[in-house]
Amino acid sequence: MRILVVCLGNICRSPLGHGCLEHLVGEAGLDWEIDSAGTGNWHIGNMPDKRAIAIAKKNNIDISHQRARQIQKEDFERFDHILVMDRQNYEDVLKLTENDEQRAKVRLFLGGDACVQDPYWDDSLFESVFNQIYDQSQNLITGLRVLSGSKKAKYKH
C-alpha cells in the first residue's frame, strides 16, 4: 500500500498526515509507503513548519526529517491513494490527472466533503488539526487494511 498526503505547501497539514500515518503504520507492523507533497512549489526542500514539528513531537511523532516537495505526475502511478486536505487541493490535484484510474485515487483525507482547516495563519489551530488528522489516520488504516484484505480474498478464489 502506497499513500500520498497532499496539502497546499507541504509544511503543515500533509507533513502531519504523513507523520501520523507513518507512525501508526509502523505500530501496526505494516509495510506501507507513506509520503507527502504540496500542490504549490513555495517550500520545496524546506522542513515542515516549526509549529507542525512541535505538535507532532508533543505526541511522540518526529516529522523533522521530512522535506517539502511538489506533487508530480509520476505520483499518480507510484501511489495507490492520494489523500488531499481540502477542496482546493482536491481540484488542483485532479487537474494533474490524465485518466479515470488516476482520478479514482484522489479523495479528501477526511472522507466525504469534510476538509482539514489550514492552521498556517492561526497558531491556535495546530492542536485541533493534529488531533483531527491523527484520529482520521487511525480510521484510514483500519479501512484500508480491510479493503486490501478484501482484495486479497478475491484473488485467492
Results as ranks from 00 to 15, higher is better:
H157W: 12
V6H: 01
Y155K: 11
A104S: 15
I3Q: 03
F109G: 10
S150F: 13
S36C: 04
E33I: 07
G9D: 04
D118R: 00
H23C: 05
G40D: 05
L110P: 03
L94P: 11
L24C: 02
N60S: 15
Q102W: 13
Q136C: 06
I61S: 07
G111F: 01
P119H: 00
S14I: 02
R69Q: 11
N41F: 13
I44S: 05
M1Y: 13
V129L: 03
E101H: 08
V84K: 01
Q136H: 10
D35K: 04
S64P: 08
R78I: 12
L16G: 09
S137C: 00
G26T: 06
P15K: 11
G17R: 11
D49T: 01
Q117P: 06
G38R: 04
K57I: 01
A114E: 15
I3Y: 01
S150P: 00
F130I: 00
K152D: 08
I141L: 09
I55Y: 00
D113H: 04
R51S: 03
D80V: 10
I53N: 03
D86T: 00
P15L: 04
T97I: 14
W32Q: 08
R69K: 14
W121Q: 11
L83D: 01
R69I: 05
K58D: 14
S64M: 09
V106K: 06
N59G: 06
F76E: 01
L8D: 00
A37C: 14
P48M: 02
T97V: 13
Y134H: 12
E33R: 10
F76Y: 05
E91Y: 09
L30N: 11
M47R: 15
L16D: 09
I34V: 15
I141M: 01
E33K: 12
M85C: 05
N131P: 00
L21A: 10
S150D: 09
C7D: 04
H23D: 13
F130A: 05
A54I: 03
E91H: 14
T39I: 15
W32N: 06
P48W: 03
N60G: 11
